[in-house]
Amino acid sequence: MLALRRPASRGAELKSTLVSSATPLVFDAHYVGAGRLDVGRAIKQTVVAVENSLNLGTQRWPHDDDKPVSGTVTYRNTGSAPVTLNLAVSGAPYSVEQKETTLQAGGTGTVRVTADTRTGPDGQLAGRLPATTGEVRVITPLAVHKEVES
């Protein structure tokens, strides 16, 4: 259905649209990703995250010398009006540098997400970066692996 509505979109772009518009679930993002796919929302939504997720790699054990690691999430606004997205990261050890970003009509914008693994549990640490405004909701799953002692 989504491919029929957006015939110029390729596979990766369609996947990003589906992941971005998913309905978040209360379960760990490591197991469920962005959440439940919502094709109806994907068809209507004009803002998507270009990348399906953000993986910040592996922090090797021991963690007393870890440095925060960062990456960017890029958003695209295919609509005809500017959109200001409110950003609120969920899940430790993640933070986002800015609380909002404005995308011009037809434009893109990036936000920086940081994971600080110097504290907290070891293992696969998942989170989400919801970007919202009005009816627009863009979900980006986050991951960093804090290596366990071995």
Rank of each mutant, 00 (worst) to 15 (best):
M1W: 11
M1D: 11
L2M: 04
L2Y: 00
A3L: 06
L4P: 04
R5F: 10
R6W: 00
S9G: 04
G11I: 09
A12Q: 14
E13P: 01
L14Y: 00
L14I: 00
L14T: 00
K15Q: 13
K15V: 11
S16G: 13
V19Q: 00
S20C: 10
S21T: 15
P24F: 07
L25T: 13
V26A: 14
V26R: 12
A29S: 12
H30T: 15
A34S: 07
G35S: 09
R36V: 14
R36A: 14
L37D: 06
L37M: 13
D38M: 08
V39M: 07
K44D: 09
K44Q: 12
Q45S: 06
V50N: 01
V50T: 10
S53T: 14
N55D: 15
L56C: 02
T58V: 14
W61S: 07
W61R: 06
P62H: 12
P62F: 08
D64P: 04
D64G: 10
D64I: 07
K67S: 13
P68R: 10
S70D: 05
G71K: 03
V73R: 03
Y75S: 07
A81F: 12
P82L: 11
V83E: 03
L85D: 02
L87N: 01
S90I: 09
Y94W: 13
E100C: 07
T102N: 08
G106A: 06
G106W: 08
G106I: 04
G106K: 06
G107W: 02
G107H: 04
G107R: 00
T108A: 12
D116C: 10
D116I: 01
D116V: 06
T117C: 12
T119D: 13
G120H: 11
Q124C: 08
A126S: 12
G127P: 01
T133D: 09
R137P: 00
V138C: 05
V138W: 01
H145K: 15
E147K: 06
E149H: 11
E149S: 08
S150H: 15
